[in-house]
Write a protein that binds this DNA or RNA. Structure first.
Lengths: 340, 340
DNA sequence: ATCGAATGTGGAACCGTTTCCTGTCGCTCT
DNA sequence: AGAGCGACAGGAAACGGTTCCACATTCGAT
């Protein structure tokens, strides 16, 4: 395997000059540079990133910690991040970390603490103070996308407003008995995505002067199968039933639609359903939803990270760091006016 | 940031001994090791993987190239790989590479060619000879999971048999007019997953003495929305319709079920549907499917990779390298006897 | 008692880059 | 004409580990 010394010899220059010519830093005469580049490509030279980052301290690699890869939202974010990072010449090291536990601690204390990543993007994970400190102490920039606990740069949708908006949409349609399939984990972290959406729901209901029955709020994982289960539980009592349902995510909503179908409840005639995410399937299922744009969010997170790393060329200005990420209510056929 | 010299000094030993004590290679007296370890943890020492891999030539990092992260099958595989790699102390660098093109070439010629990964796992990607060579030339082990073109270690389901099995299931139920929603890309790569499943379907039909009408084979992307579109096209002519449908994947099958619902076609009364994958939602949708176990497949791929890397501790024996990965037909309510 | 192997430790070389420091030009400015 | 500066190139010192080699000790076997 050729090394830079080989390139230098072939081009008739010193290692120092070869390095400068290839990296584009420092003064190199134009024809010299050309000779070096030609020599390098001739013998198929490729720099050793290990050697380079050993001396520069930069690895051109960012770590992504993400609790799921197989939930639509997270998958989209991951794709967005990957694409943007690749375009910037960065590698992406994936840490799929869900629950708290020894495995998670190992990721933070061992994997991320090593010098292998220049920065970390945490998506949808509720970081402990200890975890944030560990990163900060190593001087690794940290960007949080959603989730909670991050003291650092944070990008997030206003999930409370999302919850309010979804609920108000149903209220405006005349519904009063509005149930909520709430994302679990809300209790541990009231600041979490699911907790915020639930808070927004409660706020809208309270503002409308309605107190939801406790049995009208059912916790569920943010998945279709569990949404199905939760919806069966919620809708199982035929005598008195909600006329509308705010599902904490589109995937939950799909499960609820399936449950309604199974129970012979017509959507939207007997039950209006609204979800959150703008899932790829939402259009097919005619689901009213509050869209967010996870792929774009991932791209944005990369923008911020690159800026934090002093990668100068990023042209577009930073989005107002405080401002929440955009969302949009898309009304489809799964919601309609409340029956009299 | 502490370096190994600091640890050595604090423990009163040489760098060499400290290194041996921490890595567990070579002879170190037991009490010496303890002193070194204590010193290391006291000052929070963590090895620099760059420095280590510079000299050893091993990075403890494997690259995964995968065309989608947001299709269920691929997401599951990725999760399985991640978990297994993490457990073995390896990092996973993700390359989300779909189409052929300059971006893909860049991944293979630049990213993967550098010394940053010890090996590559390619899942579901049809590798060109050039791409395989590039890796081989750098002496990087390559494990292919599904996909085609890999000359190297390959793990795969027998997708032709899967196609046959699914079709035979429908034939046994008395169906004769059996349509197929075929995964696209089959033409470019007849050896691809989708191409094999289609071949299996054709084989079973031919064996049964049936020649499917060309309009009964519709190509679709392996996604629910596109399955929906394709099924609408397939089932749109009310006069003569298939009584059964073999969808190239569960996700396609879900789209087809939705399309049937939309068209007022009852499943399974008017139309039996069988899919492939064992998708997380299959049970909820009562979908008959041929399960495969992508998470497990990912774990297996990691096993093979680790073995190729000479990671000795992996206890369980290699699965017979030629043998196809396991699958299982799971019959649910989406298939039933053909109407008379 | 002697020898060889096994065990334990340290010094120094090495991995492949980047970058600091020097040094040589050739040019412009005073 | 001499000083000063910018462009260019090379030697050598890092970066932070691992491992080869040499050397010292202990111990069991002959």
């Amino acid at each position: 395997m050729p090394v830079i010394g080989d390139v230098a010899r072939l081009a008739g220059v010193s290692k120092a000059t070869a390095s400068r010519a290839l990296s584009g830093r420092g003064y190199v005469a134009d024809d010299t540079r050309q000779r070096v580049v030609a020599a390098a490509s001739k013998i198929g030279y490729i720099v050793s990133p290990d050697a380079a980052s050993l001396v520069t301290g930069r690895t051109k690699n960012v770590g992504v910690v993400i609790p799921f890869v197989n939930r639509w939202f997270f998958g989209e974010v991951l794709e967005g991040i990957e694409r943007a990072l690749l375009a910037a010449g960065y590698d992406l090291t994936l840490y799929n970390v869900a629950e708290t536990g020894p495995e998670r601690a190992r990721v933070f204390d061992f994997f991320l603490a090593r010098k292998r990543v220049d920065a970390v993007i945490a998506v949808g994970v509720d970081l402990s103070g200890h975890e944030v400190d560990a990163l900060e102490h190593r001087e690794k920039p940290l960007v949080c996308l959603g989730g909670s606990g991050g003291a650092a740069a944070r990008l997030a949708v206003d999930d409370r407003a999302v919850g309010t908006l979804a609920t108000e949409h149903l209220l405006h349609l005349g519904h009063t008995r509005i149930a909520h399939l709430a994302g679990a984990g809300a209790l541990d972290h009231p600041a979490s995505v699911a907790g915020q959406r639930r808070a927004g729901y409660l706020e809208a209901m309270t503002t409308a002067g309605i107190t939801p029955a406790p049995s009208d709020i059912v916790e569920t994982e943010m998945s279709t199968p569990d949404g199905y289960r939760a919806a069966l539980q919620l809708l199982g009592h035929p005598n008195h039933r909600p006329t509308a349902l705010f599902a904490a995510s589109d995937e939950v909503a799909f499960g609820a639609m399936r449950a309604a179908d199974r129970l012979g409840i017509a959507v939207p005639l007997d039950l209006s359903i609204v979800g959150v995410d703008g899932h790829e399937y939402a259009e097919m299922f005619d689901l009213t939803t509050i869209e967010q744009y996870p792929g774009e969010q991932g791209r944005l997170a990369v923008d911020v990270v690159l800026r934090l790393l002093g990668e100068g060329e990023v042209a577009d200005p930073l989005p107002d760091s405080g401002a929440p990420l955009p969302t949009r209510l898309v009304v489809r056929a799964s919601t309609t006016r409340a029956p009299r």
